[in-house]
């Protein structure tokens, strides 16, 4: 795999984990964020044009979490994602064409057009699936961590979830069990302040740090819109998880779009939306890069490279086939037999 995808398979430690990544590392992370951003903007347009069926949840504004955390993971580490999982998937290294083919419901898609946005998965890179059920990824990641531990692998599992999921019972079950079994499991809370259409302050009665402490889990909070800060924190905490047990990484971020594409966000203060641009993680990283001496032309080149890749993937996706119904029907079981259907 070429380009930004190579970052995801880079062994941890390549980045400067004791502080912010160096300029080259930051440019790499920046490139990935631009890729995710461009992919999702393109998906938003394709969705509006009716080319992407169903409904999609964009993670625009949260790219630094995906990119920062994944920069600390290896290919054999596993993640369980959420309904807002495009960023996780792309950062974990899913092939871009397969991703777009799936989102456009093509037979050549990663999931053969059977899953779509909320179920993109690529087990070959340890991406165990986005998920349509809030909180459902946590037990899956926990089970994956159990497998790593039991089979003697030094891989870690990461459960991504939003602050809205904190109200789900399995979060509490999983914190408890991860601690009891000392699993190599990192809980990453993308705290974007919203639980669908309500601010999380109206939904969650506790602080994640306090909850983590109650379970004896180390809790690290970081500015989730500063990719360098996320990468540094992730490198540190993933190393600890790999060596010795579960932890919680809370990334404070912002949801720049609605809960889903087409959400008019009437429930949201227009001033809040207007101020979101100041905290745009792509902009923050660009400013950091310019300060390190990287010039605008290089950033433009990154954007142009990304644009070509995305358009190539979209073109490929548009050329894909509709899936075959009989093949899909035959694909319910890994080993079919008996019965009818």
């Amino acid at each position: 795999m070429e380009g930004v995808a190579t970052v995801t398979t880079r062994p941890s430690g390549e980045l400067n984990v004791s502080g912010a990544p160096d300029a080259a590392g930051l440019l790499d992370l920046y490139g990935q964020m631009v890729l995710i951003r461009r992919c999702e903007e393109r998906l938003g347009a394709l969705f509006a044009d009716g080319e992407v069926p169903g409904f999609i949840h964009l993670s625009i504004g949260q790219e630094a979490v995906s990119v920062g955390v994944m920069s600390a993971l290896r290919r054999d580490d596993t993640i369980a994602s959420t309904h807002r999982g495009h960023g996780h998937a792309i950062a974990k290294g899913l092939p871009l064409e397969g991703f777009f083919l799936e989102l456009l419901a093509r037979d050549e898609g990663l999931c053969r057009g059977r899953g779509g946005s909320m179920h993109v998965a690529d087990t070959s890179v340890g991406m165990l699936g986005a998920n349509g059920i809030v909180g459902a990824g946590l037990p899956i990641a926990l089970g994956s961590a159990l497998a790593h531990q039991q089979l003697g692998r030094d891989a870690v599992a990461v459960a991504f979830f939003g602050d809205g999921a904190l109200a789900e019972g399995v979060v509490h079950e999983c914190f408890n069990l991860a601690r009891l079994w000392n699993l190599p499991l990192l809980f990453v809370c993308e705290n974007n302040g919203w639980s669908e259409f309500l601010p999380s302050s109206k939904q969650i009665a506790f602080k994640l740090g306090e909850l983590s402490a109650a379970f004896g889990l180390p809790h690290v909070a970081v500015d989730g819109n500063d990719v360098a800060a996320v990468a540094a924190a992730a490198a540190d905490v993933v190393g600890k998880v790999r060596a010795g047990g579960p932890a919680v990484l809370e990334c404070v971020t912002a949801r720049m779009r609605g809960h889903f594409e087409g959400d008019a966000q009437k429930y949201r203060n227009p001033d809040e939306i207007a101020r979101l641009a100041e905290r745009d993680p792509v902009g923050i990283a660009a400013r950091q890069l310019l300060k390190t001496g990287i010039d605008e032309a290089e950033l433009t080149e990154v954007a142009e490279t990304v644009e070509r890749r995305v358009e190539a993937a979209v073109a490929a996706a548009r050329g894909g086939r509709d899936p075959d119904f009989e093949a899909a029907k035959a694909g319910v079981y890994a080993r079919a037999g008996g019965g009818h259907g």
Partner: peptide, 18 residues
């Protein structure tokens, strides 16, 4: 006593080699 997580963890473990 966490039935939801027992089953969910089985799914994750099964997807990861157990």
């Amino acid at each position: 006593i966490s039935e939801a997580t027992i089953a969910g963890a089985a799914v994750g473990a099964a997807l990861s080699g157990l």
